[in-house]
Amino acid sequence: ATAMRCSHQLPPAHHIAQVVDQWAAEVEKLSEGDLDVEVFGADSLVKANDNILAVAKGDIECAFSLNFQWGKTLPIMNVTVGPYTMSSIEAWKKWPTSEAAAFLEQKLAEKGVKNVAWMFQTNVSVFTSRGRALTSPEDFKGIKMRGIGPAFDRGLTAMGATTVSMPGSEVYQALATGVVDAAITDVAAAYSRKYFEVQDHMTVVPVLAAYLHGYVNPSWYESLSDKSKAALDEAGKSAAQWALDASIQASADAPRQLEEKGVTVHVATEAENEAFKAVMQPAFAEGFAEETGEDGKTLLGLIEKIQ
């Protein structure tokens, strides 16, 4: 059997980490044991930010990254981080076989990795805060906020917030003590990381979509048998569906669980979302256009088709 080491950053209990495990078993099954997949989660083999280089360079065969992690290396991967760009579940259902996905796969191949799986992780985020809810762009003026990355944070800055970056392990206490006032996070994570103990208002917003995608080293992929390649292709398609189901499930339960913990949960209204979009979208789009040029425009056009 051919060893296939896959690194990712998610903790074992995360709903997408479990989809990765399921995907690994499926690959082994479909390849009839030709591929021996070993999953190393929780940053245990390669750190989150180093996965891309490790696979491209051939240190390991396979890894999963969140789209943020491509940063300036392949800025077009950030497209779904754009405020309200890929907010609907319907669009995500069409994603794996869409022209947009094929376009990104092409870009990844040109960069030097072969994409094998798209795992939609969330489109439900929360703005968490204490004392008052963040329901309009004006509410963000002058607050210190833990952001999620340069591309998305442009939108927060446009609303007047000051974004702070800090290691994940420090966020809870920073929120508890007011080193930062607010945060944006995936709604399920707000529950699993116990933000409800230190924040009492959360506004549910479909502001961004994040996905984890799996990719392998291209020359290693080329050396595989047709059966193994087909197994990867097939398992990738199944995993996209599993991830979608798991994410919808995770997002569905969280708001109620948060309310049970005493958080005032507010689901942003259409008008409120429009207001956020009006301020955040242009700020993001400007940076995105600058970094991605024609390719960015083409991709946004393709995404328009599946909305």
Binding site: Q173, A176, R193
Partner: peptide, 14 residues
């Protein structure tokens, strides 16, 4: 508790 009481009261709830 001899170890955990102080960090818990300081708001390190995790």
């Amino acid at each position: 508790q001899l170890s955990l009481w102080l960090p818990t009261t300081a708001g390190f709830g995790r």
